[in-house]
Design a protein around this nucleic acid. Structure first.
Length: 667
RNA sequence: GCGCCUGUAGCUCAGCUGGAUAGAGCAUCAGACUUCGAAUCUGAGGGUCGGGGGUUCGACUCCCUCCGGGCGCACCA
């Protein structure tokens, strides 16, 4: 509603400026004023025009206001301060529109988007850093879908990389395990009833131990370890041997665990493209041809990159002679680098490669399958890729390689695709030194004074995702047991789970992407203040009101619509005047939903929605304490208060839903 | 050395394309439950927005510079 009125006012002001001053102003600045006494929308346009028109801003504002005339949806306009033009909404009309839930469709509706997130190396348990990635990605998917976009969700699996190789080395050379023994171990782990006994946890430790082992012993031994690692990697990449088979077993089993962990948070995927298929289906060969033909890649005959196929880095200055700084895509031994494979993969994402994966079902969700890539797939199968816009949820450390891929697409002439390629970058999750010490890690002296320490799967340093979720559930369960004495075990379990996940998802979403999260159990396990449970609690309170009042939100809204139609004058006093500003503020907040959604998508920033949900909850709590609804004697007033609660509930539930957070029935 | 990010209350963070009096949460202190459930609310204290220049009618926001943190800059993935 806010967004619609904002557009309307912008268009109208543009017409007024054209007519009155013969000025074409493309972008009319419109903002939400800091205080309701300034109205609901405000424009400082008069300041900008002052120089051009050689008049005082206040005079210009005055002239514009006089020329505005009546505009549907607005009650009036006035000049304030040194020349602000303030617009006041027609409150009755506005509340009717909000109560009716009318919203315009997003400009991006119908777009086919592809979001890639999670992408954990399948060689160890997921940790809190991976949770941030998955929660950001999953939430963004929900936002795009809310805007009417068609979204494919992908989780890229690097199953042939050095990280999986490290665990294979651990099994083969540290533990001397055979293929059958690893198979048996996996089978026994899958029977484990707790996470500590699960295979991804087992690999967590083994991976850390192997990583350490590489650096142990004499120089010759270290060299031998490194060679083992490289040989193992090559055997895996090549395929068709026991090492590759062991790697396949490990990565598939760990991947399954990752999907289970993410499912605990309600996170699902459509498709899991794997590196092994990108290799075996020769995606690179197809990309290489295009890259050569378009001149993006050139063969270097001189300098330190002699014998390689290289590309110019983004933003590189035009240089005479040899570009020593160029990015190597094909090594002098003919093998392709990571960025090269990534270019091929991204051509596929946009449907520009001319090749496709094979597909087979891999993991069952309640109502559908998650598909995985394979060389020879099944028929029929859904088709993925060929998207118009893509979002890669990858931490900020990978911005250089991501920029290389975009540069390559642009160089190949795929300008539109390059423009719709978003590196959805975010900062890592780290542990506070205190948290690390509490967890029993040896913390180096120099790290104790730092504000945070980076988590590291290689070092086995971090908080595992399932452990954190378990801890959260234990904490919420204790509260639920104390509060919900009238409910049975099943209900309590459900509620505790909803709150725990709500707390976790909100915690990961409340920070903007560029901020490092210094993880601490005290903050993550908090259910008060700016948290998921606070927002959930507001929705529960509203549900309680309707339950106690023996009515529903829908009924309240219908009754309000009826009253607004038959006797609008009766309603006006309820949201007019100083003493009712808090109620009006709540309606206005509710009206901002689409505005916030568009802002989140435009900036790839889900944190704005988290903030919006919190503010909505906060304003409701405020309202809740000031107005007692069910004991209200005035019939019309009660209808109005109930409608207010109904609108707040609808917006809270919807906002939470977009954040991937459920609204419990009680808590 | 080059590039990107970052510095806002004791702590953790917001601050929309430059706009009106810089906001939350936590923590601290003082209050509010026979009420639609207190996982809540009310109030208080707490700020040279890292320093200095500049652009502008107007700068937390843009530019320059310095200081302090972080991360990238492989023929590794």
């Amino acid at each position: 509603m806010y967004l619609e009125l904002q557009k309307k006012l912008g268009d109208h002001l543009r017409a007024v400026l054209k007519q009155k001053y013969d000025l074409d102003v493309e972008n009319i600045p419109l903002e939400i004023p800091p205080d309701l006494k300034f109205g609901e929308l405000s424009s400082p346009i008069a300041f900008e025009l002052a120089r051009k028109l050689r008049k005082a801003p206040k005079v210009i504002a005055q002239e514009i206001v006089e020329a505005i005339g009546p505009l549907e949806g607005f009650a009036g306009f006035d000049v304030a301060g040194a020349g602000y033009i303030n617009a006041r909404f027609d409150r009755t009309a506005a509340t009717r529109a909000v109560a009716g839930g009318v919203t315009s469709t997003s400009s991006s509706a119908g777009l086919h988007a592809l979001v890639e997130h999670t992408s954990i190396n399948p060689n160890k348990a997921a940790h809190i850093g991976h949770l941030r990635n998955a929660i950001l990605g999953d939430t963004f998917v929900k936002l795009l879908r809310a805007a009417g976009q068609k979204v494919d969700v992908q989780n890229y699996i690097d199953n042939t990389g050095v990280q999986v190789a490290d665990v294979v080395v651990g099994f083969q050379h540290l533990q001397g395990k055979s293929l059958d023994e690893v198979r048996a171990l996996i089978a026994s782990c899958e029977k484990s009833t707790d996470y500590a006994g699960a295979f991804d946890y087992y690999c967590w430790d083994l991976y850390a131990r192997t990583s350490q082992w590489y650096g142990e012993g004499t120089e010759e031994e270290k060299a031998a370890h490194k060679k083992l690692r490289l040989d193992t990697l090559h055997e895996i990449e090549h395929g068709g041997n026991d090492t590759a088979e062991m790697s396949e077993l490990i990565s598939t089993s760990v991947l399954r665990r990752h999907l289970e962990t993410m499912l605990r948070l309600g996170i699902e995927y459509d498709f899991l493209p794997r590196e092994s298929e990108i290799l075996h289906l020769k995606f690179w060969d197809a990309a290489f041809e295009q890259l050569k033909k378009t001149g993006v890649l050139y063969f270097e005959n001189e300098g330190k990159n002699k014998g390689c196929w290289v590309m110019t880095r983004p933003g590189a200055a035009e240089t005479e002679g040899v570009d020593e700084d160029a990015k190597v895509i094909v090594r002098s031994n003919g093998t392709v680098t990571y960025v090269g494979k990534d270019i091929a993969y991204h051509l596929w994402k946009f449907g520009l490669l001319g090749k496709d994966f094979g597909y087979k079902p891999f993991f069952k969700y309640a109502d559908r399958d998650c598909w995985i890539s394979t060389e020879h797939g099944v028929e029929p199968h859904p088709h993925f890729g060929g998207a118009q816009a893509i979002y890669n949820v990858i931490d900020s450390r990978q911005s250089d390689p991501q920029a290389n891929v975009i540069q390559a697409l642009r160089g190949m002439g795929y300008t539109e695709q390059a423009d719709r390629y978003t590196h959805f970058s975010y900062e890592m999750v780290a542990l506070t030194p205190r948290c690390a010490v509490d967890l029993g890690y040896d913390v180096a002296e120099e790290d104790l004074s730092r504000s945070y320490i980076e988590v590291s799967g290689r070092k086995g340093f971090g908080v595992k995702a399932d452990d954190l979720i378990d801890k959260l559930i234990a904490a919420t369960r204790a509260e639920t047991d104390a509060r919900q004495t009238g409910r049975d075990d099943v209900e309590r379990h459900k509620i505790a789970g909803q709150i725990a996940i709500g707390a976790l998802r909100y915690f990961m979403l409340k920070y903007t992407r560029g901020s490092v999260i210094a993880f601490d159990f005290k903050d993550a396990l908090s259910f008060e203040g700016e948290t998921g449970p606070y927002v959930q609690y507001a929705s529960v309170r509203i549900k309680n009101i309707f339950r106690k009042g023996n009515t529903t939100a829908d009924a309240a809204l219908a009754e309000y619509a009826e009253l607004a139609a038959s006797d609008p004058a009766r309603l006006a006093p309820f949201f007019a005047g100083e003493e009712n500003e808090d109620i009006w503020a709540l309606w206005l907040r509710a009206a901002r939903r689409t505005l916030v959604l568009e802002q989140c998508i435009a900036t790839s920033e889900p944190a704005y929605l988290a903030k919006h949900a919190f503010q909505l909850a906060q304003e409701f709590a405020n309202f809740y304490h000031r107005h007692h609804i069910l004991t209200e004697e005035d019939r019309a007033k009660k209808t109005f208060l109930l409608a207010t609660a109904a609108v707040a509930l609808r917006e809270l539930v919807l906002s939470l839903e977009w954040l991937g957070i459920e609204s419990p029935e009680a808590m």
